[in-house]
Design a protein around this nucleic acid. Structure first.
Lengths: 359, 359
DNA sequence: TTGTAAGCGTTATCAA
DNA sequence: TTGATAACGCTTACAA
């Protein structure tokens, strides 16, 4: 590969001049510039980005640390990050599948000197701690932290708000007896959603009843089991709020099996708005989490931070969520933003087919 | 940030010795090693990867150039790439949304000196040409090329084979009169699928009839229009093969609207196996393209190439596809690999919920 | 077993 | 407006 030296030699100038032409950092005589440009073209010279960043100590690259890449959720986060990166002129260096803190550390180390900052997501306590420590090496934006963190910037999903909104929705539908299937203990999303549920009930003057709360673990089968338990209740609730859509789908299966009509006999609500939420019968009323916006915001936050260095304490944002009213709670009307065209044409169909080879 | 020089000074050794301890490239006395390790720990020293790769001219990074990140398809490709990268000890530098050849070029240039090779996907004629040119700068594996390319390694989806398999399946179901909705002209996927259709018919001794072939453009609405046209035919075919699932969904809509029962009166088949193919009514018989495998293979091919330099001409692989028999062609049996559990529990549900925050 | 010093391909600081 | 040359942080001959 040709280097800047080859170009300089061919153009009969010094490397400094070539650099100036390439970057426009200082005035260069037109005749000289021309000679240099010709030499660049002749060699098809591409500056060596790594060498460049060694002197400038700027990489124009963002490191992305994710626990996984599986599923629509992470896909959307990455798309948001990519969008933000493009808007701000950054590249993205991705490292994923950090099952444990050690692997995460390794991924981060490999980025040393190759990124200007980090967008990270940590699934659990250990990894969250590791990422917090990384903020001594890089500027970091931490997505949806497992536990509250002060040392680095964070963007948290409004789990509490979403749960409150959902319970209020159920109350507004006239349901007074509302049960919940909770997520795994120690999971921040799960706990915030649970907290929102209890808060909204109390605010409405209703005491949350232990007999209506079932421990799940975010899997469909745990939702199914909870559904059977609820079906067996002597006085079942009028509505059940599942801490995620997977469990809500499990509830639907159980109720269908038991011949309990949804939403006629019991209303079912979820959280996350996973793609199949639109396809189950009845279509699931849930809380939409906008992963794309999460990624986009993270990048915006990070690049702002990178551009004008640390100024004040790291910001802590909250990503709003949105109630999506479908049919599983007995909707009379559709949420505006989730409006569905006629026939079998689902909301995401175009995006999906664009995503295939057939585009 | 601490450098190798700081560490060397603190440990009372030369930078060369620190490097040797870090990389294990030469024997170091135990006592020395200990002092160095302590200094490394004290400074929490992380070697500067960019500087390192400047001397070694190896980056342990793969550049990924994609036209888009949208949808399940690209998500799966990236996941496959990521998996392959992890297995082989590479990082991935992603650049996407290359609407045109210029943007693609820019993305590639930014990778100069930062990657050991490239996995690229080009949607059209121009970008494919650009990528072919890139192979003078990097080792390149080109996914699903728009047109045949010799200069760089490629992995193509077995569109032809898939179409042949589908038509044979329809023939085996007893359908003799088989129509097709084709994809856009000039699109390689579309043309290969169309070619497969005609080939399979001829092989069965059936002359493809122009009156049964409808030009589509991969959108649902073009499928819908074709469906209406087919419904209006005096002698409609017994089956229709759409060149992608989006158009097949459009066909289903049209037939439903016209009161034509599927698969009772007419069979419908698609290609791609997009997620909603499982959810439409009747569930769509289609050809599955394994995007994960595509990404994984590409990385394997590329890293093999990187490790033991150019040896012989660039390889050209074909990614097999798989027929997925569901209900839209009157299935009596289910394809083994697409077996569906009872109730509303869809195949991908676990993966999807793992992809959400709720994990 | 260790140290010295020459790169790697840029940019940046001085002088000229 | 240009050219020498010293960084940047590391690896790697070559010597000791």
């Amino acid at each position: 590969m040709a280097t800047i030296r080859d170009v300089a030699e061919a153009a009969g100038v010094s490397v400094a001049t070539v650099s100036r032409v390439l970057n426009g950092t200082a005035p260069v005589a037109d005749s000289t510039r021309l000679r240099v440009e010709q030499a660049v073209a002749r060699f098809d010279f591409w500056p060596h980005a790594a060498a460049r960043s060694l002197t400038t100590s700027r990489t124009h690259t963002l490191g992305i640390l994710l626990p996984d890449l599986h599923g629509q959720f992470f896909s959307e986060i990455i798309r948001g990050i990519d969008q933000g990166a493009r808007e701000t002129g950054f590249q993205i260096l991705v490292s994923s599948s950090h099952a444990d803190a050690g692997a995460l550390m390794l991924g981060a180390r490999a980025m040393s000197g190759r990124v200007d900052g980090l967008v990270a997501m940590a699934p659990d306590r250990d990894t969250t701690t590791v990422i917090a420590r990384l903020s001594r090496k890089f500027p970091v934006v931490l997505l949806n932290p497992h536990h509250p963190i002060e040392v680095c910037a964070t963007i948290a999903v409004a789990n509490f708000d979403g749960a409150v909104a959902m319970v209020k929705h159920l109350l507004a539908r006239g349901h007074r007896s509302i049960g919940m299937v909770t997520g795994p203990l120690g999971n921040m999303d799960a706990e915030e959603r649970w907290r929102g549920y209890r808060h909204a009930l109390k605010e409405a003057g209703i005491a949350p009843q232990a007999r209506l709360q079932f421990q799940g673990d975010f899997t469909e089968s745990s939702g199914f089991r909870a559904g059977l338990a609820i079906a067996a209740l002597s006085r079942p609730p009028a509505a059940v709020f599942a801490a995620n859509d997977g469990m809500a789908v499990g509830l639907l299966s159980a109720f269908r099996q038991q011949g309990i009509e949804v939403p006629g006999r019991i209303a079912v609500a979820g959280f996350d708005d996973i793609p199949i939420a639109e396809f189950v019968v009845p279509r699931l009323t849930t809380v939409h989490v906008d992963a794309f916006a999460l990624g986009l915001r993270a990048v915006k936050m990070l690049t702002a931070f990178i551009r004008r260095s640390p100024a004040g304490p790291p910001p802590h944002q909250k990503l709003p969520v949105r109630l999506v009213v479908r049919q599983s709670c007995g909707a009379k009307r559709e949420s505006v933003s989730a409006k569905r065209p006629a026939a079998v044409r689902p909301r995401r169909a175009d995006a999906l087919s664009r995503g295939g080879f057939s585009s």
